[in-house]
Amino acid sequence: MFEVIFLQFLNGLDKGSAYALIALGLTIVFGTLGVVNFAHGALFMLGCFCAVAFRRLLTLETVTIDPEKLSPWGQPLQVREPLVQAWFGDFGAILVNYSVPLSLLLTVPVMLLVGVAMERGLIKFFYKRPHAEQILVTFGLAIVIGELVKAFFGPNPHPQPMPTDLRGAADIGAWLGMRAGVITYPLWRLIYFLFAVSIIGAVFAFLQFTTFGMVVRAGMADRETVGILGIDIDRRFTIMFGIAAVVAGMAGVMYTPLLPPNYTLGMDFLVISFVVVVVGGMGSLPGAVTAGFLLGILQSFASMTQVKAIFPGIDQIIIYLVAVVILLVRPRGLMGRRGVMEA
């Protein structure tokens, strides 16, 4: 039984990693700009498609005809060779193999640009407008981004292979001194968890230990006073919006080997991530991260056969049930500031 529980715990960490990373970005935007950004899921999805685009670039092919070989329908066979491999040989093959992690190099600048452009081009006009209007405009933006991705990449999922060395499962049971093969878990999912923890740690360290972060935190606490001191807080908040977009994009890139992305992926994650933010506490960064992992683990345990035998379908609704209870009992969420979401 220990193995079953431990595996579900790992599963929960893996799911929670994605929830926490998206919720973290949402909370940064809400905490700094006071904007409820329904387009944040679309940023996650855009990150996924940065990985898709990067791989397409790496796998551009030359097509030659081999007259000596025939296809099953009797025509000369087309021989396809990736250009990168033709140019760089084995090194090119390694580049293609590691296309997912390497695409982070493309994703960071692209998502930073997208985030800044989004904030300067649209979001800034809605700072002082009611939340309902912010939700409407960002939701509309999410639909526009989704349709643009659909127009360029088509409606169907795009599987992204993980590097061959990182496929397969890690024998965690053996690491813990147990019998080999008792607890095995996919290596890439463990990498995703470690990646999420690193990104979350980096964001917290950035806000906690840099002057820029200190000013941003001060601005989050009292924007007007920071402005009176002569600091251009708007510019810093714009950069924070860009950073939130980068976090969402990187989360998306590393998720592509686990779930082939399509243009609707952002919406699928957005709803759960908002629930995570509400449960964690609107505007609370530690709350978003804690709630992300907690809800991931809870959802994973709810999907155990033994649990579903008692409560059929509980795995599909558990997150929303928790949100309802939290909103009834503690509307400001687990770690939210007093007064936020409270009458």
Binding site: V4, L7, Q8, N11, D14, K15, R189, S300, S303, M304
Partner: peptide, 9 residues
Amino acid sequence: SQFLTPVLN
């Protein structure tokens, strides 16, 4: 993943 994990044991 949530459906595959219970298969293992």
